[in-house]
């Protein structure tokens, strides 16, 4: 069978499907000062599955932590139109479970184009393999 670390190089999705892969990728992102990208990506996935009674509070928590401060790594990678869409959704009593989907896609693209290829070339990954 293919060892997990070779699967991680197939796609970002394969990497994020493996607990050890996530951990190593997160260590790499911490070194680069951008672990929030990964945390936000998982927060968006978790948000979709969150029960309705917690969704409104959680939407505000995600918004405050990653989006409202425009200097953060996540906020800087999300398009202004997407941010204003989220801002409108957050104030609703029953936020849409898909309200962070566009932002998640934008952050995923950032990781696929930048941090993921860098990770595969990093000493951290090479030493692991």
């Amino acid at each position: 069978p293919t060892p997990p670390y070779l699967k991680w190089a197939e796609s970002l999705h394969s990497l994020l499907d493996d607990q050890e892969g996530i951990q190593l990728f997160r260590n790499f992102l911490c070194q680069e000062g951008c672990a929030d990208l990964l945390d936000f990506w998982f927060a968006c996935s978790g948000f979709r599955k969150t029960s309705q009674d917690k969704r409104s509070k959680l939407a505000k928590a995600i918004y405050r932590k990653y989006i409202v401060d425009g200097t953060g790594i996540v906020s800087r990678q999300i398009k202004p139109a997407t941010k204003s869409f989220i801002r409108d959704c957050v104030v609703r009593p029953h936020p849409d479970p898909a309200m962070f989907e566009q932002a998640q896609t934008e952050i995923q693209t950032t990781m696929e184009e930048n941090t993921y290829p860098l990770f595969l070339k990093s000493d951290l990954y090479l030493e692991y393999t």
Partner: peptide
């Protein structure tokens, strides 16, 4: 704010794959 952080952590870990 603490409980907001807890909620966020719970949300993030709920989205992660479980150990195989």
């Amino acid at each position: 704010i603490d409980s907001e952080d807890d909620l966020l952590l719970e949300c993030i870990s709920s989205a992660m794959p479980k150990r195989k």
